[in-house]
Design a protein around this nucleic acid. Structure first.
Length: 484
RNA sequence: GCACCGUUCGUCUAGGGGUUAGGACACCGCUCUUUCACAGCGGUAACACGGGUUCAAUUCCCGUACGGUGUACCA
């Protein structure tokens, strides 16, 4: 039987980085096995629906390289893939359970339920629907239930959990899990508004869509026994479960904002390469057992297995992600990067942005930064002609010693095209100019860098001068030597 | 509270009955260097605790501690 997996987000907001990883694992598993990866939208909670969320999540996923074979945006033979469009189906299946005695009607108001929980809490027992004391099909009797239903009384349908039976299932990542039936709540399956809860919709859809492996976050582990009971109630074979560990904040709680970005689009906006983010996130909780840290999507697909997913949650290390992004910045093709950077340079209004020139600049400075956009900040003096004002310390350094002006003047006079051709010639000129002014070469280079770039740190000075070209160098030197 | 899940350097992890417990990020030092960085070299740093089983346990088992998740007419 061929593998079919699904990623099933709720359209309640932007795509979370943890969701990206869950989606990625589903995707990798499907591709690894030549199976099918499905996107299903779980929008059964109308109150939390956010306009545009579905589109945003799909595009974030696509940005990261996670695509689907079936889904609301691409179609497929198991649709519709949006639960709100499958409304009637859930009621139909819910009623089958009522008919076969594995689910029942309940009429309690939320106030009554709150009161029940308060009583239980006060008595020190676990909050759980009290089937024998609340207002439901069993306590009210068939006639009264019928009457209330005919009257149109608000009601829900609850799962009748077998009380004296252990529920067990085998999780690919966690092994055998056994839960006593008396611990499991009589979960609501159909809400009073007629919509299904996650539990019902999820099980029905996974079955109808012939999902073979449910790969989802660990937070679902505690409710999996309910799902197992549902499969049993329907007489269906449950899929294989794999609960992946959570992504964590530095304090080890479930990853959330407050500690940093958590939305995929935030990472995209910050300038992370999708390849770097995917690489990094894949390795949070999974490892193929090698020391290699770098994996393309293809590499991940060929080496991914659920068995090698870790059990423990992983703290999300932003610092290491930055490092990884920098590594991708160094490896990427400079021409491509120049193309990617182009819009930003245009936006800034820089004059020197000819693609092959930009590529040269990128090659020169990318060792020193982690983001492509940092190149703009780091090398603004290579793209623009208007330099930011010198710092006070820099001005003091340049004006504090006449010898520096003498040396720079000497350097300017010696700056001819051939010097730009040859690193040794450049060095020789600097040496000569320094000696002429009676200072060491090292004492000249820093002022020279300041005059040419208005920066104290930067890339190799010869290469910088070379990229600047004779004309720009001369005009910057002149601006220093004879300020207008 | 109850249920479930988890626990190897600060972090991500490899490993697995007998190892100098390996790698990466971060951090520190050295080298290179006109600066910063890169690179290279080196360093600090971990098997939560207690019992078993065993000739031998970080590795298997059981407890404990700690942490996380869940406990909704949310997913």
């Amino acid at each position: 039987m061929s593998v079919r997996v699904r990623f099933a987000p709720s359209p309640t907001g932007f795509l979370h980085i943890g969701s990206l990883r869950t989606a990625l694992y589903n995707y990798l598993f499907a591709r690894h096995h030549g199976g099918t990866c499905i996107l299903r939208i779980e929008d059964t909670d109308r109150t939390r629906f956010v306009e545009g969320a579905i589109e945003e999540q799909i595009s974030s996923l696509a940005w990261a390289g996670v695509t689907f074979d079936e889904g609301p945006h691409v179609g497929g033979n198991y649709g519709p893939y949006t639960q709100s469009e499958r409304f009637d189906l859930y009621r139909e299946y819910g009623m089958k359970l009522v008919d076969n005695g594995t689910a029942y009607y309940a009429f309690d108001t939320s106030e009554e339920l709150d009161a029940m929980r308060q009583r239980q809490q006060a008595a020190g027992i676990a909050p759980k629907y009290d089937r024998s004391a609340m207002r439901n099909q069993y306590t009210l009797g068939e006639d009264e239930t019928r009457r209330l239903l005919d009257e149109g009384a608000a009601h829900v349908i609850r799962l009748k959990v077998p009380l004296h039976q252990d529920v067990r299932f085998s999780d690919v990542i966690r092994g055998e899990v056994i839960v006593n039936g008396r611990e499991i709540d009589d979960q609501i399956l159909l809400k009073s508004d007629g919509f299904p809860t996650y539990h019902l919709a999820n099980v029905v859809d996974d079955h109808l869509m012939e999902i073979t492996h449910v790969i989802r976050a660990e937070e679902w582990l505690p409710s999996t026994p309910k799902h197992i009971i549902l499969y049993q109630a329907f007489g269906w074979e449950p899929p294989t479960f794999a609960h992946v560990p959570l992504l964590l904040n530095p304090d080890r709680s479930k990853m959330s904002k407050r500690h940093g970005d958590v939305m995929v689009r935030d990472f995209a906006r910050k300038g992370f390469f999708p390849e770097a983010l995917v690489n990094f996130v894949a390795l949070c909780g999974w490892n193929p057992g090698s020391d290699n840290e770098f994996y393309s999507m293809q590499d991940l697909i060929s080496s991914f297995t659920l068995e090698r997913v870790n059990k423990a949650g992983a703290v999300f290390d932003y610092q290491k992600l930055n490092w990884m992004n920098g590594e991708y910045l160094k490896q990427r093709d400079a021409q491509d990067l120049a193309r990617e950077l182009h819009p930003l340079l245009v936006e800034r209004g820089y004059p020197h942005i000819e693609p092959s020139y930009v590529a040269d600049v990128i090659v020169l400075v990318r060792e020193r930064v982690a983001f492509l956009s940092d190149v703009v900040e780091f090398a603004d003096y290579l793209f623009g002609d208007v330099l930011p004002p010198l710092s006070d310390e820099a001005s003091a350094l340049l004006s504090g010693n006449d010898k520096i002006s003498v040396a720079i003047d000497s350097f300017r006079k010696g700056l001819v095209p051939s010097v730009l051709e040859d690193a040794d010639a450049f060095k020789g000129l600097a040496q000569q100019s320094a000696e002429a002014a009676g200072i060491k070469m090292g004492a000249l280079l820093k002022p020279l860098r300041l005059v040419l770039t208005h920066r104290e740190v930067g890339a190799d000075l010869f290469r910088t001068v070379q990229l600047l070209g004779l004309e720009r160098c001369l005009s910057r030197l002149d601006a220093f030597l004879s300020p207008s």
